[in-house]
Design a protein around this nucleic acid. Structure first.
Length: 417
DNA sequence: TCTGGGGTCCTAGGACCC
DNA sequence: TCTGGGGTCCTAGGACCC
């Protein structure tokens, strides 16, 4: 048996941990630049606020119901996530951290599954203050279904999906578009041919599913029928692509501003590469105008460069990123977003050196190591390249940012006795 | 006025090889 | 008149996830 632990309304719950008076009150967490709604407490969901809507469209509802609004604080959410995962890790044989707010677990073995789930939920609540739901079933896809039921149809927040009859009942109840692996496109395709529920899909012909939903869809259906196709993966695999991109708080029309942003993103990619001990041999840069302003001239620039020798050196990657930028920049546009992608990633240990290499790699590597250790200790970008700038004209809008209670000592709560 | 930021996998088609 | 059979690699696009 497997289980899926899923944090309820995770970002909203994180904000509540340090502001418990918000319990029972509607909360929203916004995307970067405070643009869209990316998390809602139950109370906000009940008020009809949809996932992903631009904030300005629900401004009235926010004011009317005095909804508490937060900018996204990923430092806080990331830290609380780590803590939730480590509490879970102590209670189970194996865990796969699937996303910031979800983990699959090995729930096999003796003991009653339901009780074990309830106990785990209680521990996470007590240790971290984050409410979770748990779905328990023989396959990952069925765990997802069980988790959905746990969240909506149980008091305990834990549900076991094991008996054949209960699985069948659950699948007949579940609309096909709610399935893990069925997105909007597939849902429409399936609905068009009369497949409305997960149960309908289970009864469809294998070769038909294979043709319409590819092998990925077929695996999912097999899992619904009880055959595991997605094993528990304890080791997080290394990224094959790494991207850092942002929309700007304010549009940028000069190349200097873009240079500053792009060098920061390239530096961030290089940092992420070093953290996973990889080197990239391709770097790409893109810049976009604002697609929501149709009156503006629209342009999307994208280009890549191939490196002779794979690298994770900030100095080199920033230089190449700026070279890409020069190629795609057009002075007659106003830009709203830029990004850097590094790909073709290979392990740092096995690099083939280029015959014509001019960089002193060893020296650069020492610089990077020093840079990382300083910044890990004293804060992000405490020491950085000059091109990254100090102006931050491109920076994000974050007007409702909560403190980093658990990761910055200055932000820690003070308790007066 | 105001609209996020990351990822993965699969498939089809083209270019190329022998 | 008739025009093979087997591969690989790469890329773009489409689908999905959080």
């Amino acid at each position: 048996m497997l289980a899926l632990a899923d944090c309820n309304n995770f970002y909203a719950s994180c904000e509540r941990v340090f502001q418990p008076h918000l319990e029972g009150k509607p909360i929203l967490v916004l995307s970067n630049n405070d643009g869209c709604v990316i998390a809602r407490s139950n109370e906000s969901k009940a008020l009809g606020i949809k996932m992903g809507v631009p904030v300005f469209q629900v401004k009235n509802t926010i004011e009317q119901h005095n909804i508490q609004v937060f900018s996204s604080n990923f430092t806080l959410y990331g830290d609380l996530s780590k803590r939730v995962m480590s509490t879970i890790r102590q209670e189970v044989k194996a865990i796969e951290v699937y996303s910031i707010d979800e983990a699959f677990m090995d729930f096999s073995g003796e003991g009653k599954h339901l009780e074990k789930g309830i106990d785990l939920k209680k521990k996470v609540q007590q240790h971290i203050g984050i409410p979770i739901s748990i779905g328990i079933a023989p396959t990952k896809t069925l765990c997802k279904v069980a988790g959905l039921i746990a969240k909506t149809h149980t008091k305990s927040g834990v549900f076991v999906l094991k008996d054949k009859a209960i699985i069948e009942r659950a699948l007949k109840w579940l609309p096909v578009e709610e399935l893990w692996g069925v997105g909007r496109r597939h849902a429409r395709k399936l609905n068009d041919v009369g497949i409305k529920t997960a149960y309908d899909l289970c009864r469809a012909d294998d070769s038909w599913i294979r043709r319409r939903l590819s092998v990925v869809g077929l695996r999912m259906v097999k899992e619904l029928r009880g055959t595991p196709c997605f094993p528990l993966e304890e080791q997080a695999s290394k990224k094959k692509n790494i991207c850092t991109s942002r929309s700007f708080g304010k549009s940028i029309s000069n190349i200097e501003g873009l240079k500053e942003a792009v060098s920061n993103y390239a530096n961030s990619c290089a940092y992420k590469l070093r953290k996973q001990q990889g080197c990239a041999s391709r770097i790409s840069v893109f810049i976009h105008t604002n697609p929501f302003k149709p009156t503006d001239k629209q342009y999307r620039g994208f280009t890549s460069l191939i490196l002779d020798t794979p690298s994770n050196d900030s100095i080199e990657l920033v230089r190449l990123a700026l070279k890409c930028l020069e190629k795609i920049y057009r002075s007659d546009c106003t830009y709203k977003k830029a990004g850097v992608i590094v790909s073709d990633i290979s392990p740092q240990q096995q690099q083939q050196l280029s015959l014509f290499d001019t960089i002193n790699r060893q020296k650069h590597q020492s610089i990077m190591t020093a840079l990382d250790s300083i910044n890990d200790k004293f804060g992000k970008d405490k020491v950085h390249l000059a091109v990254q700038g100090y102006g931050r004209r491109w920076k994000m809008k974050q007007e409702q940012l909560s403190p980093c209670y658990s990761t910055r000592i200055e932000d820690a709560l003070r308790v007066y006795l």
